[in-house]
Design a binder for these strands. Structure first.
Length: 752
DNA sequence: TGCGCAGGTGTTTTT
DNA sequence: CACCTGCGCA
């Protein structure tokens, strides 16, 4: 039989082998959830299920990527590549690309990120002459988003009595009108925001029975990760897609539900059992990740929540070290203490940087740790925060590309029509907008006939030049690939040049970012796939992909060894040998916004539970008596959650109020030793680091031993295809057989 | 029209 | 503290 089943415990194995009919896996933290999901997919394929009939949905790209890689690893070949594994948003975007026209959208629809969406809202609030303090873009956006996540259209919204009451109470009676205008504007722009990807998927399925039936047939097996985080829209889509075969497997843990602010509802877990007859429920309660102390602490904390599914997580792992509770004077001391602890732990126990994670409640907390780590010469990486694609210079560049692909995208046109400066000012824009609205024309069409809109003189000729330029780009689209086109855009628009000319240091960085965007597009077009598979690589697809990428999706360099800094939200699903959970203070964690609502407070507690359960071996929990907030030093009480951890599990050596600077270890002998170690390590790393120069495909023959930049070492076992485009089958030491297109793969020959 | 500066304002969490 | 906005000036 299949060897991959052998490493599973009985519950896991049952979950993998129960293929037909609805299945709910209640999987506690660290109980091997990902292993079950990936093995299940591999098992399905092993049973002869076609890859394109399996749909697996996750919440983050990272989780999707890991799942794909692990399936590949189990199967030992690249047959996993055509699996539909991805986030709800990215998979639906992919499907909607095919189906968009049936609901009136162009297939090259633009995907608006939160910033784009807020800009549209800002314009609408202005055009309605509303109080911009009251109708702040973020507030309006959140309200609309919440409605959409519940599948409310603007019509539903306007008709709902309770909503109306609520908006009037908060003095925002025009919310429904803004929602309507926003929806119409996005549609007119051929654009969808994040929520629309769900809403429109639902709309498409419910209004086009033939499409619904197509996807119901196609996806014979559906798997949903983190089911406790699904919102109403996602819930209904899953239900629709799975209605024919009812082979829906959901994995979830109510204790880890931390996205209710995004419309997620734990109720979906309970509802699942009511929606289908004979739902098989399997609980995974053995934790393989953490020491007993860590697990006991986590269980004790979550025990303070009223609402939860009964389960008890246990482990066979040893008791392990006590949890370190650390109190410092200020947030800067907190940073220093964490950096020092990492140094010390590295030295004593020979951990790598990547064995450590610092987890915090809010992104703003990263500052003190960045400083202390930098000072201690510890490499780190912050996940989250501003994505590469949200930087101004990148958004500007992308806006041009978006216009080429989808000229209806008014938002993008407005963003760059006068950047770089070409003398098309505010008054001209508002004239054009007015004319467009009055004559029911798209902004682009009005640009094309700007003189009819009453524009003359210099502005008119500038606009005409702009239109000619964009049209020229559009006609290049069929002749050039995405990279060549983007390069042309950078040159012709003067975008690259304007960045280069600005001269200051940060401008140089922006210039380099623009170059990096070009590199990314180049890579997208040139390297069809890791395995050399060729799929469509149009500019339109590229643009739809990048909006859904976050900073966390960026690949780490192969040789990177860094401490991870991230929010607790972002850490879900990950594990580290050593974890610092920081900032355990009232008003911060639990957040000040959550103190007056039991449900909110319980969600904060679940968040703390998630944080604790990331740790495998060592856990530190820290807090500071004083912290800079808005530039002012404020004092804090320790978090109520700390009192919920049984005392006997905690080491309080550093928990008593220290004097400021107590933990700064200027004369620490450890530090000197560390310096030496660093030098050694650098030498050692040097060999590994060395520039990876790929060898020519011509020199590769059957039997040649090679090294792949990502896949490691292997041997070519077969060659096929024409001389100019040879495809090699390579047996990798770690990953097994893979087919690689030599023209695209980066391989170097290993001399034995 | 464009840029620089002063002042106000705000912090959860993310696809 | 850091970002954004609005205002005033060239």
């Amino acid at each position: 039989m299949s060897a991959y089943l052998d490493s599973l415990n009985s519950g896991q194995r049952e979950a993998v082998e129960y293929l037909e009919g609805p299945l709910m896996i209640v999987a506690g933290a660290g109980s091997g959830k990902t292993k079950v999901l990936t093995t299940r997919i591999a098992h399905l394929m092993h049973q002869g299920v076609d890859t394109f009939r399996i749909l697996a949905l996750t919440f983050t790209n990272k989780a999707a990527k890991e799942m794909k890689e692990r399936v590949e690893l189990i199967l030992g070949d690249n047959s996993a590549r055509s699996l539909f594994i991805g986030t709800f948003h990215s998979i639906f975007a992919r499907i909607l690309r095919f189906e968009a026209e049936s609901i009136g959208y162009p297939s090259n629809f633009t995907i608006y990120d939160t910033t784009d969406a807020k800009n549209v809202i800002k314009d609408i609030v202005k055009s309605l002459n509303l109080d911009e303090k009251l109708y702040k873009p973020a507030t309006v956006y959140n309200r609309i988003s919440a409605a959409k996540n519940n599948l409310y259209t603007y019509k539903d919204y306007q008709a709902d009595y309770d909503i109306k009451q609520e908006d009037e109470r908060s003095k925002r009676p025009m919310m429904g009108v803004i929602f309507e205008k926003y929806s119409k504007q996005c549609f007119k722009n051929g654009a969808m925001d994040f929520d629309d990807l769900l809403v429109n998927m639902y709309l498409m399925l419910t209004t086009h029975p033939e499409s619904l039936s197509k996807y119901q047939h196609k996806f014979r097996y559906i798997l949903i990760d983190e089911y406790q985080d699904t919102n109403t829209a996602q819930y209904h889509i899953i239900k629709l897609l799975g209605a024919m075969h009812e082979n829906i497997c959901v994995v979830g843990d109510d204790a880890q539900s931390i996205y209710s602010f995004r419309g997620a509802s734990v109720k979906n877990i309970f509802q699942f059992q009511k929606d289908y007859e004979d739902v098989k429920v399997i609980k995974l309660e053995q934790n393989y990740r953490s020491t007993e102390s860590i697990l006991l602490a986590a269980n004790a904390v979550i025990g303070h929540n009223k609402t939860q599914i009964e389960k008890s997580l246990w482990t066979e792992n040893g008791k392990g070290q006590k949890i370190n509770l650390v109190c410092t004077f200020t947030d800067n001391d907190e940073g220093r203490h964490v950096a020092d602890s990492i140094s010390e732990k590295k030295l004593r126990n020979h951990f790598k940087n990547s064995d450590f994670a610092i987890l915090y409640r809010t992104n703003a907390q990263s500052r003190s740790f960045e400083e202390s780590l930098r000072r201690s010469n510890i490499a780190y990486r912050i996940y989250g925060g501003l994505s590469f694609y949200q930087r101004k210079e990148i958004k500007d560049f992308v806006a041009y590309l978006r216009i080429i692909v989808n000229p209806k995208d008014e938002e993008s046109i407005k963003r760059v029509i006068n950047y770089p400066t070409r003398g098309i000012g505010k008054s001209t824009i508002s004239k054009l907008t007015l004319y467009a609205n009055e004559n029911d024309k798209s902004f682009w069409d009005v640009l094309c006939e700007c003189r009819a809109a009453g524009i003359g003189g210099r502005a008119a000729s500038s606009i005409e030049n702009f239109v000619v330029m964009i049209r020229a780009f559009q006609s290049m689209e069929s002749k050039k690939n995405a990279f060549e086109l983007a390069e042309e855009v950078g040159k012709t628009t003067g975008l690259i040049k304007s960045l280069y000319n600005e001269g200051a240091v940060e401008d140089l960085a922006r210039y380099e970012n623009a170059q990096e965007l070009l590199n990314a597009i180049q890579e997208f077009t040139q390297t069809p796939d890791e395995e050399g598979e060729i799929i469509e690589k149009s500019l339109g697809i590229y643009l739809q992909q990048i909006t859904l990428l976050t900073d966390a999706d960026k690949d780490d360099p192969e040789d990177s060894d860094v401490v991870t800094l991230m929010t607790i939200h972002a850490s879900k699903g990950l594990e580290f040998p050593n974890v610092f959970v920081v900032g355990l203070e009232e008003n911060l964690f639990p957040s000040s916004q959550s103190l007056y609502d039991l449900d909110d407070l319980e969600e904060e507690r679940r968040l703390f539970y998630v944080a604790i359960t990331r740790a495998k071996t060592n856990l530190w929990i820290t807090y500071a008596n004083h912290r800079y907030r808005y530039g002012k030093l404020v004092s804090n009480e320790s978090s109520r959650f700390l009192d919920e951890i049984p005392e006997d599990l905690v080491d309080t050596t550093h928990a008593r109020k220290p004097k400021s600077g107590q933990f700064s270890a200027k004369r620490d002998p450890l530090k000197q030793a560390l310096q030496q170690r660093k030098v050694q390590k650098a030498n050692y790393n040097h060999e590994v680091k060395g520039q990876f120069v790929a060898d020519s495909p011509k020199d590769m023959k059957e039997g040649t031993k090679v090294e792949h930049q990502r896949f490691g070492f292997g041997k070519i076992s077969a060659l096929e295809g024409p001389e100019a485009n040879k495809i090699a089958t390579i047996e990798f030491d770690l990953l097994g057989k893979k087919k690689i297109m030599l023209n695209y793969a980066k391989l170097r020959i290993v001399n034995v």
